[in-house]
Design a protein around this nucleic acid. Structure first.
Length: 891
RNA sequence: GAGUCCUUAGCUCAGGGGUUAGAGCGCUACGUUGACAUCGUAGAGGUCAGUGGUUCGAUUCCACUAGGACUCACCA
């Protein structure tokens, strides 16, 4: 007979099982159809894996993503859907280039310019290939059932064609334009950066007030003030009412000569702030740029792209901004133009979050995506913005949790034109060529000579935005695209809603006139036990890979799935993982027990023909409920709830009750059949949560051999059979028996009756149906064995007549049991316990009585509730009466 | 400045207009020589942050208050 080791040792199973899964080919939906696992005309279910950045290794956040997505994928595969989970990596241009540049400097003290574009890019490619290998291995370790045959990369050749195709269409439609506009410039990395990639840091700096003609102006950035010749106030500011818009002044300023300043009135000025008057620097400030645009003012560059002052700064030329700031303040002070300084002015400075430097707004000629330009689509005037809004507003896309819809709309509503060109080398090059004044945009380079390509590359998110369809082969009209797009679920962290999810909606609706996915499921961030973000500097990072050998992948997956709800952060400590490791082991040992019961040659039943035991009806009916609940919970994306129900059933109902009961049932043939039958489906229900141990047990238990299939491609359990055999009625009755058993144990514990002390017990079943009475009668031997320590049990239909003192306990108005007073039993204690129960009943009755006395309640509350309340009132009254009788007669 | 979320048992969190509010861990007491000490049995522990409103009924919905977390915008 087959036996299992005492403990589930995950490390001996996981890698081999993954290899078997992968080699079976069934991660690929085409092979599932070929081999008849999936019907040809089955519906499709598809998730495109959010591609991890090519910069490094996967962290526990990625594990969450993989656990949730693999759960969905495995579930749908078992449901018989054409199921595809497509893996890939994101080239993450800015972050990757920054990392490789840093490594290059650390190792060889070289910059990318030392190497030249081509050699540098070879370096990056090599780095990326290595880290992709690491990530592929990590995803396999997590058990991810990804279709590796379809793996894609945001920067491979196919995706380049997709990017160029998208760019060209947008260019031709006038959605992409080239313009001189203010952008976020990172002088350190020498590139523009998108609004979303900027991090703001609070900083305390001095705030200066200068005399500027008749005005006092305030600034925290004096170094930008060289060229200022416009003074702006709010049109309604009474302090400046005497001056007219467009009026000019001769003003003493930094240089030797006076300058001519013009007054501009604009509502962008906040009269409450500073002196209510400011000068503007349109080249280096977004607000100032907008004001200058509105009034057609001149714009002058003060700071170079290298972050140093330009010749306009006179003798301060080539100084960096901080040096220049000091110097100019000194100068103005000498000229007696410095009015005062406020120290500790708090303002925010912008930093490139991808490892760059301080952002300096600059005007640059860049490529932009116009999000407001209107065009005609299906006979309607639309813009990219309106397409993005419509996709969610129309409920075509469902965001889970719903509250993030608000965040989404807020972001879309405030979206500005998207700067898509970058001056870094790594990435998709802008597919535009120049020859003199001519511009050519195409998917491939022009055939004639003399054209020079735009050296800039595209924002990574431009290619990521295409991901749901570029990964499926677009712009070719592939079978995959037809079959799997729109994809089913986009599962990702809520922190990436803007960066990515919104841009995918933009690209997909515009280019394909299709939504990219039907459901967006946003998971929370994984935090440490104290609720802090995990970071290298805090040293609180949990690396999934180091935990796997100790706890097993299944335990890690469970600890990420159970107890977490969409959109909410999850606290994770090793203790929690250990807890689920224990559960994995519990499941293993349940199997070990069942297997030990199996007689050689006993059959696997696929259809339960005859059931005789009440416990069998009970467990079958409970299982039917479980299948229904777990299925619907997964369908409604309530994974944690599904997991909790499974754990509760497995540990409590199945292991602690049913298995314990089978030990005392006489009909071993039947209990064995039932055990094997239920456990088979229990493993299936668990499989999407904990793929390894379930697949291992499926094999060890002999299911694999019998059904000639691995569990991950076996069909999802059907509740039909259970429902037919396990009648809810008998299940309910049997539950009463369980409650009775618990009550007997509790009474024993409360009275400190020694565990080995046997008792006699009288059980009164009054006012019950004959079926219930006979069920109890049939199962009396069971009750005596289930840790109740009963020696003699006496069952009667009549109320108990007291001749000697007894402890009496009633469960409801039907069942009560009575134990003769022993020396060990403290009568006062029992009296106190009953008094307490009586008090509780009286309180409960009070609230019920008040409710029933209220005429509005009877009138307005649903009738069934009123009836239930009345019934409850009756029951409580009887129980109270009974207790009072016990107190009077027996103690 | 705008917005979102959270506040439920000692801890971590579910839940949800319907009456005696749940889980896991922890705690207390007890038990166990063959499925499992990575176990079992029983128990203690909560005016569901506060105030007001809507309702027959609020822990749940609404408003405000207090504390905490986050996101967006960014004002010279």
């Amino acid at each position: 007979m087959k036996t299992l080791s005492k403990i589930y040792e995950s490390q001996f199973f996981e890698d081999a099982l993954y290899k078997e899964w992968e080699e079976s080919g069934f991660f690929n939906p085409d092979i599932c159809i070929q081999k008849g696992i999936t019907e040809k005309d089955a519906q499709s279910f598809c998730i495109i894996l959010p591609p991890p950045n090519a910069t490094g290794i996967l962290h526990i956040g990625h594990s969450t993503m993989l656990a949730i997505e693999d759960l969905l994928i495995r579930y749908h595969r078992m449901r018989g859907d054409k199921t595809l989970w497509l893996p890939g990596t994101d080239h993450a241009a800015l972050a990757t280039q920054e990392k490789v540049e840093r490594l290059l400097w650390e190792n060889d003290k070289k910059t990318r310019h030392n190497l030249g574009r081509e050699t540098f890019l070879h370096h990056v490619d090599a780095f990326v290939e290595k880290s992709r290998d690491t990530m592929r291995m990590q995803m396999r370790k997590m058990g991810s059932s990804l279709d590796w045959s379809r793996e894609a990369f945001t920067l491979d050749k196919k995706r380049n064609i997709a990017v160029n195709t998208a760019f060209k269409k947008m260019f031709d439609d006038g959605i992409i334009y080239r313009g001189d506009r203010i952008v976020n410039w990172d002088p350190k990395m020498q590139t523009t950066v998108s609004d979303d990639e900027i991090e703001w840091k609070e900083e305390s700096v001095p705030f200066y007030y200068f005399q500027y003609g008749p005005f006092v102006i305030g600034t925290s950035r004096p170094e930008t003030k060289f060229g200022d010749k416009y003074i702006v106030v709010h049109p309604d500011d009474t302090r400046y009412a005497q001056y007219k818009h467009g009026e000019t002044f001769e003003v003493e300023w930094v240089g030797e000569k006076k300058i001519t300043a013009t007054l501009i009135k604009d509502r962008a000025v906040d009269p409450e702030f500073g002196s209510g008057a400011m000068t503007i620097t349109p080249w280096h400030d977004t607000t100032d740029f907008d004001i200058a645009e509105r009034h057609s003012l001149n714009k002058e560059q003060i700071i170079g792209y290298n972050g140093k002052m330009l010749p306009i700064a006179g003798d301060l030329v080539e100084l960096d901004i901080f040096q220049a700031r000091k110097k100019i303040v000194e100068k103005l002070k000498e000229k007696k133009l410095l009015v005062r300084i406020e120290e500790n002015y708090i303002h925010n400075i912008a930093i490139n979050s991808r490892g760059g430097g301080f952002i300096e707004p600059q005007i640059k000629r860049q490529w932009f995506v116009n999000v407001n330009k209107t065009f005609t689509r299906n006979g309607k005037e639309v813009s990219l913005k309106s397409l993005m809004q419509e996709a969610v507003r129309s409920k075509k896309i469902n965001i889970i949790p719903k509250r993030f819809e608000k965040t989404y709309f807020h972001w879309v509503d405030n979206l500005r034109d998207w700067c898509i060109s970058r001056q870094i080398w790594y990435g998709h090059q802008v597919p535009v060529w120049y020859r003199g004044e001519e511009i050519y945009c195409g998917i491939t380079s022009p055939s004639e000579d003399g054209w020079k390509q735009d050296p800039d590359t595209l924002d990574t998110w431009f290619s990521s935005g295409l991901w749901t369809f570029s990964s499926l082969g677009w712009p070719d009209k592939t079978k995959d695209l037809q079959m799997f797009h729109p994809t089913s679920v986009m599962e990702t962290g809520y922190d990436i809603l803007f960066f990515w999810v919104a841009r995918m909606i933009l690209m997909s609706t515009y280019l394909l006139d299709e939504i990219p996915f039907k459901t967006v499921y946003l998971h929370g961030l994984v935090r440490d036990e104290q609720g802090r973000k995990m970071s290298k500097s805090l040293g609180n990072v949990i690396d999934p890979l180091t935990l796997i050998p100790q706890y097993g992948t299944d335990a890690i997956r469970l600890s990420l799935l159970i107890g977490s709800t969409p959109g909410n952060d999850l606290r994770l400590g090793e203790e929690k993982i250990a807890q689920y490791r224990n559960f994995t082991n519990k499941l293993w040992n349940i199997a070990r027990f069942i297997l030990s019961q199996k007689k050689e040659g006993s059959p696997f039943i696929e259809n339960i023909s005859s059931i005789s035991l009440d416990s069998s009806h009970f467990i079958l009916s409970q299982m039917a409920m479980l299948i229904t609940n777990v299925t619907s919970d997964i369908d409604t994306h309530q994974f944690s709830q599904a997991g909790e129900k499974l754990r509760d059933f497995t540990w409590n109902t199945f292991a602690d009750w049913y298995i314990e009961i089978t030990k005392f049932e006489e009909n071993k043939e039947e209990t064995q059949e039932i055990l094997f039958f239920i456990f088979k489906d229990l493993l299936k229900l668990w499989h999407p949560f904990m793929p390894f141990v379930t697949e291992a047990l499926w094999k060890e238990m002999g299911y694999r051999e019998h059904f000639q299939t691995m569990i991950f491609v076996s069909p999802w359990p059907q509740k039909g059979l259970y429902k037919k055999k396990g009648t809810p009625h008998s299940s309910e009755n049997f539950s009463s028996l369980i409650i009775l058993t618990q009550a007997i144990r509790a009474v024993r514990a409360q009275h400190h009756i020694a565990p080995n002390k046997k008792i006699s017990l009288t059980l009164c079943i009054t006012k019950s149906s004959p079926e219930f009475f006979s069920l109890v009668q049939r199962n009396l031997p069971l009750v005596t064995k289930l840790k109740t320590g009963i020696e003699n049990i006496h069952l009667q239909k009549e109320p108990f007549i007291f001749e000697t003192p007894h402890i009496s306990h009633s469960l409801d108005d039907k069942i009560s049991f009575h134990i003769p007073l022993l020396e060990s039993i403290d009568a006062d204690k029992e009296k106190a316990r009953l008094d307490k129960e009586r008090e509780e009943i009286i309180q409960c009755l009070f609230s019920i009585n008040t409710r029933l006395k209220n005429p509005d309640y009877k009138e307005k509350a649903p009738q069934h509730l009123v009836k239930e309340t009345q019934k409850k009132q009756k029951e409580l009254l009887e129980r109270k009466k009974e207790i009072e009788q016990f107190l009077k007669n027996t103690l």
